[in-house]
Design a protein around this nucleic acid. Structure first.
Length: 225
DNA sequence: CTCCGGCGAG
DNA sequence: CTCGCTGGAG
């Protein structure tokens, strides 16, 4: 087992290789509520479809806000987001979460995000439709908290890269965070996510073309390419 | 563990 | 045509 310092350097090299391939990355949305809506729409759904649903909903609502969604019927919301799939489930989540924000936080989600990170996290987790991944996405990109959201791609990558074999969300997250400095964590999430989408997919990973094959224990056969 | 689901890629 | 897609709840 290599030392921690060596593993941090190794991870930095991975991220640098990804930055070269994909360019520097930044999240499109920063408004906490818009980000939450986008995150819920994206659950178990490809990005093109979830973005399309987000735009439709935004157009229907004018500027997206909790009051408007809380006032819409579930059927009405579902109609606008149908193209994202899981429409009834997501419509229910969007309406309930909006109602909760209106009733308990005066319609202002940023009130939650101003709390200490762990408190904000457990508040977000109490929202309907918000699990670990969605909560951490909001914390990372809107509250600028130094957390790394772990989705299915980052789970797979953790295993293949040898970062962690755990199936426990917080353990995998901690394993990544140990290797990545606070300032780079939000971008690291996006870079690794992109690696998962474009190369390190669950079924047929494209190791031959992978930008980090030389740094990956699972890509040994392709190290010299 | 199962269910929700429209959509584009292959 | 089949299949997987930035999860979460019951």
């Amino acid at each position: 087992m290599k030392g921690l310092a060596a593993r941090r350097k190794w991870m930095a090299e991975i991220l640098e290789a990804l930055r070269e391939r994909f360019g520097p990355m930044k999240h499109r949305l920063e408004d906490p509520f818009e980000l939450l809506v986008a995150a819920i729409l994206s659950q178990h759904t490809s990005d093109v479809n979830s973005e399309r649903a987000f735009e439709r909903l935004e157009k229907a609502a004018g500027r997206l806000n909790p009051e408007f969604l809380a006032g819409m019927s579930e059927r009405e919301i579902a109609k606008h987001i149908r193209c994202a799939g899981l429409a009834k489930v997501k419509a229910g989540r969007l309406r309930q979460v909006s109602k909760k924000i209106v009733e308990e936080f005066n319609g202002d989600l940023s009130k939650v995000l101003r709390r200490p990170v762990e408190e904000a996290r457990s508040l977000l987790l109490s929202f309907p439709g918000v699990g670990f991944k969605t909560a951490d996405v909001v914390l990372a990109f809107s509250a600028k908290a130094p957390v790394i959201p772990v989705d299915t791609h980052l789970f797979t990558l953790a295993r293949r890269l040898g970062v962690s074999d755990s199936k426990n969300y917080d353990e995998v997250r901690a394993a990544y965070e140990r290797l990545i400095p606070e300032g780079g964590r939000a971008e690291a999430h996006l870079l690794l996510l992109n690696l998962g989408k474009k190369y390190c997919s669950a079924r047929n990973p494209k190791c031959r073309e992978c930008p980090v094959r030389r740094l990956c224990p699972s890509g040994k056969a392709y190290h010299k390419l």
